[in-house]
Design a protein around this nucleic acid. Sequence first.
DNA 1: TATGAATGAGCGTTCATTCAT
DNA 2: GATGAATGAACGCTCATTCAT
Lengths: 194, 194, 194, 194
Amino acid sequence: MRKANQIFQGAVDAFAEKGFDRATMDEVAERAGVAKGTLYYHFVGKEELICFLMEEGIGQLSSAVAEAVAQTDDPQGQVRAAIGAMVAYSNENRKFCQLLVKCIWSNAERQEQFREILQSYFDRLTGILNHGIHRGVFQPQPMEWAPSAWFGLVTIVILRVILQGQATDQERLVDYLYTQYMYGIIGRDIKTPN
Amino acid sequence: MRKANQIFQGAVDAFAEKGFDRATMDEVAERAGVAKGTLYYHFVGKEELICFLMEEGIGQLSSAVAEAVAQTDDPQGQVRAAIGAMVAYSNENRKFCQLLVKCIWSNAERQEQFREILQSYFDRLTGILNHGIHRGVFQPQPMEWAPSAWFGLVTIVILRVILQGQATDQERLVDYLYTQYMYGIIGRDIKTPN
Amino acid sequence: MRKANQIFQGAVDAFAEKGFDRATMDEVAERAGVAKGTLYYHFVGKEELICFLMEEGIGQLSSAVAEAVAQTDDPQGQVRAAIGAMVAYSNENRKFCQLLVKCIWSNAERQEQFREILQSYFDRLTGILNHGIHRGVFQPQPMEWAPSAWFGLVTIVILRVILQGQATDQERLVDYLYTQYMYGIIGRDIKTPN
Amino acid sequence: MRKANQIFQGAVDAFAEKGFDRATMDEVAERAGVAKGTLYYHFVGKEELICFLMEEGIGQLSSAVAEAVAQTDDPQGQVRAAIGAMVAYSNENRKFCQLLVKCIWSNAERQEQFREILQSYFDRLTGILNHGIHRGVFQPQPMEWAPSAWFGLVTIVILRVILQGQATDQERLVDYLYTQYMYGIIGRDIKTPN
DNA sequence: TATGAATGAGCGTTCATTCAT
DNA sequence: GATGAATGAACGCTCATTCAT
């Protein structure tokens, strides 16, 4: 198990920097500190390693979001908690988040393999929104687009932050993303009646 | 010029489907309907072809946005026009838009090459936002994140739509994106007054 | 004919620097100041151009030697005149001489094509030696090797001089080559009884 | 090491026949009896393989000469021993010697890479000559040309012999080269006194 | 005569994968 | 379990040659 974990880390490192296709198995092995053959002892091949990575990572992210959301029943509080969890996760797993955003749509074939994993994450986001709509707090929305919008908004900003490389005030970032997503660019004071 | 244009189309086709790295120059040539050597007669190499593609495409998108925005002075109207232009462009250039979103962050080295091009597009978005803020219509925002948020929101939803493949009511999509971006998930009731 | 000559010069330039195989027809055309198609209008192909070059060049060298040798009947004088002609020719045609030495044995197939041309040059050298031997001035020698020895001695030193690039005292060079070839490293005074 | 040696042999074979540029890595691999990828596992690339070949080969030749020369202190004996070693080496390594002469000046870039290796060999020849000059046995000579002259004389004759392909009386060849180099075409009667 | 856009066979190189140890 | 030498299919790219103008 030791080695398998080393490989996981090495793979995230290598893939995040070079992308799935340009990172070689040699590089993965080197960053993982194992011999190339060992990669194939633990994983069937490169594509399987990539799949494992994505499943594992998105699963973790999804769990983190679920856990955060479970703390409150208030729809707005849930959205804030979810965004908070996303930002926190991305901060602790910069490499993986880079990888996630950069490579998730890289290629039509892999697309197919990730769809299921990603769908479960989107379903979670959809659930949160539906809860708020059901409560009458959020407006009814076209649900075929809503999770993508949320995902895109949060994810691309986070990627920007990661790529910039400089330290960021997490609190402020969550605040911005939450406000933007909840109230748009027009802003809170115009419309939060509560 | 004839051939160069064929190559452009073939390259967009091939790269959109397979990604920059998995699409081979043979495939590009085949889809363009030219011999492989012809690719290299018109472009220095694969990376240069990729760069040319991105510059050309983002340039077109950026111009389309600029043109749409120029029609009105009203900040909200400008945002709506911009989103309308984005959706329209993506509808007319599905392949390129796929390519844009899927591949723009693919790889650290290319990242660098695209930064300048993408920045000019982001600057355009920033300009629109600043105009609205100046007018007091939009809330002041952290401008290091604002264009990314806009870009991410619109782009990822559009990508979803394109990948789904089914025909979409453009009007309704623009409506959704505009409302979401302008008022967030909460504030639909304060619709655009026009 | 203008163009054909330009091509000749361009080809010598390009081939001398890069060798027959690494110099491209594009480079030849560029250095000749003609379009690539023009090369093929005047010459059947690359190999034919190479052959033409070698025949022309060796022919010129051979003629220069013949002319110089014709001036005297004295065997030693003939050798000296021949070496003088070789050095003079190499000085006026540095590029071609470089080409000659560097590329003449480059490749088994071309070898075959040059053999005849080169043989005529070797025959000329053989003739000079035979004349001296017949007169009893030169020692009888294994004639299958003698012209090669002469050719190698003179040619490799000349190449060295050309490659060094610095200006050389022609007189001194001829002196050295003549003495070395005529009397060996032991030197003249020990053995020239006359 | 097994494979590396096979590659060495295959490379010498292929390059000797076709020249560095026309021999392909496929041919090298085939003659070496290994897969093409194996070539690149052991050597960085074609040019590095070429360099390794030349260094190794000239190194061996140089060592053989050094060893032969070390047997005697007599200048003329040293020259004879050196030429004997050259001929012997060329007889045992026909392919490499072909390669050496045919390709050593093939191309300006490679020129530069070989200069150092070749220089060490020329230095050895220069050392032998200086010894004889110091002893007063050889005439003082322009040392910038002397090793080239020796090298050219011996080498080109040897190449001729190799290319002719027929069996040669080594003894007689050494005799001829020695006499020619030591006494020139004139002075055979003053033979080595041994 | 002269051109240069277009071609495609062929090259050097890479890299995911295998397998004997 | 773990290794790394060996493999070969496949890639990006080159360049001699052709041909419509």
